Simulated assay, not measured.
Amino acid sequence: MNPLAGGAQSFPYVSYLRIYEPIEAFSDAQQLAILAQRGRERHRIDSIEHEQSLRRILRTLSDPFPHHETELVRTTHFPGPSGSTAPYYCPNQLAVRTTLAAESLDQNLRGPLIDVLVPEAAREAHQARLDQDTFADSAAKLHTRSATWGVPFAWFALIHEDDLTEVVEDDGRVQTVRITARIGDCIDRGRRSIAHLAVAAPEMDLLDEITEIVDWLEVFRRDAVVEVDYGPVAERVFPDDSPSDVRLGIESLAEADMLGAAASYRRLASRWIPIRQLARAS
C-alpha cells in the first residue's frame, strides 16, 4: 500500500514547487547525504516527512521546529542533455524553511497568538541548533516552495500539458500528480508570460508573482529540472487543464481577446475557487 494513503491526505491540501539539480551542483557534505539516501524510494521520503510533521505538531510543548532530524533528499529521474535518463536531487532544507516560515508568521501576526504558535523559547533553541555557516547559502538557494489550498496560477505558467507527468495512484485514487520540465523551458515560458502581461495587464498580481518565481529560478543551474507536485489536491482536479488555461488566458490578454481571457479565467475559477474556499470552511 502506498504510504501516502490515509493520514497523509489530511487537510490542509499542500502543493509543492521543487527544483532538482544534478549531484555535482551540491557541496561534498551534501553529496554524502544524497548518496546515503539514493536508494530510498520517493513515497518513503514523503511518508517520513509526514510522520515527522505529526510528531512536531503533537509535542506536549508548542515547538514547530525540527530537532536534529536527518536532512531528507528527494530524487527524480529526467532525460539529460544526452537523452539518457539521469537522477536529479532536491534537498528538503527543513530547518531553513521553518526558520523563514516563522519569520513570515511573525511579520503577519500580531499580539499573543504568535507566542502561542511559535514560542520565543522554541525560536531561540532552534537558532542555537542551526549551522550558521551554511544557513545563509541555503536560505539564498531554497529548492522547495509550498502552497496550501491549491496550486498557484503562477506555477502553471511554467509548465505545459505535454511535459513529463507522473500520476501517483493507490487503490484507484489519485494521491498526487507531478509535472516535471527543464528549468530553461520554465524560465522561457515565465519570461514570455511576463512580457505579455507587462503590456496587456500590468496591474495584475499574476505579473508580479511570475516575475518573482522567474527571479528565483535564475538562481539555479541551467541543467536543473522543475517539478510541480499537486499533492493530495490532485484527487479533486485531475485530469487538470490549468496549465493550458493559464497559457491561453495570458495569450488572449496579449491579443486583446477579452472574451477568450474571460473564458480561461472562468474555467480556472470553477476548478480552484471551491478548493480555496475550504480554507474558510468550518
Rank of each mutant, 00 (worst) to 15 (best):
T70L: 09
D257F: 04
Q52F: 00
T76F: 03
T98P: 01
L113C: 09
L109D: 06
L61F: 06
T60N: 07
T148Y: 07
Y16A: 05
D170N: 13
I114S: 04
G260T: 08
C90T: 08
E166W: 07
F11D: 13
L248I: 15
V219T: 11
Q175L: 10
F153I: 12
T176P: 10
H68L: 14
D131C: 03
D223V: 14
D223F: 14
E120K: 15
A279L: 05
E49F: 15
I183H: 01
P119E: 07
T75G: 12
V199E: 14
W216T: 09
I114W: 00
A140W: 00
I179N: 04
A125S: 12
W272I: 04
C186S: 10
V73S: 09
P64N: 03
P152K: 15
I114Q: 06
R222S: 11
H43D: 01
V167F: 15
P22K: 12
S27P: 05
R173T: 09
L248Y: 14
L17H: 06
S270F: 13
P3S: 14
T134V: 03
V226N: 02
H67I: 01
P202K: 11
R56P: 00
I57L: 02
Y89C: 12
R145W: 06
R129S: 07
W272L: 06
P64Q: 01
E203D: 09
D223R: 14
W149A: 03
Y230H: 13
A86D: 06
T60V: 02
R280Y: 09
S242G: 15
A121I: 00
N92P: 11
I114N: 02
V73Y: 10
A262P: 02
E161V: 14
R145T: 04
D208E: 13
H143T: 00
A136W: 03
A25T: 09
G190V: 02
S62M: 08
A281M: 13
R182F: 03
A128I: 08
F11K: 10
V174E: 08
L158R: 08
A125Y: 13
P87N: 05
S193K: 15
A29P: 12
E71H: 10
L100K: 00
D137L: 07
C186Q: 08
V151R: 04
P243W: 01
G184C: 06
G83M: 07
A25R: 11
A200N: 09
T75Q: 15
D241A: 09
A262D: 04
E169A: 07
W272C: 03
V96K: 00
A102Q: 10
G39M: 05
R192M: 08
T75D: 14
H77K: 09
L109H: 08
R221N: 15
R266T: 11
D131K: 02
L17C: 15
R192F: 03
T176M: 09
R267D: 01
G150S: 08
E212C: 11
E41S: 06
M258V: 15
D137R: 11
R38G: 13
F65S: 00
R40T: 14
D257M: 04
G184V: 07
L100A: 00
Q127L: 12
F26H: 08
E218A: 05
V246E: 07
A121Q: 01
R178G: 08
T148F: 10
R59S: 00
L61S: 11
D223P: 07
A234R: 10
Q37T: 01
A279K: 01
H43W: 00
A8M: 04
G172P: 03
I19V: 04
R129I: 02
V168A: 14
Q107T: 15
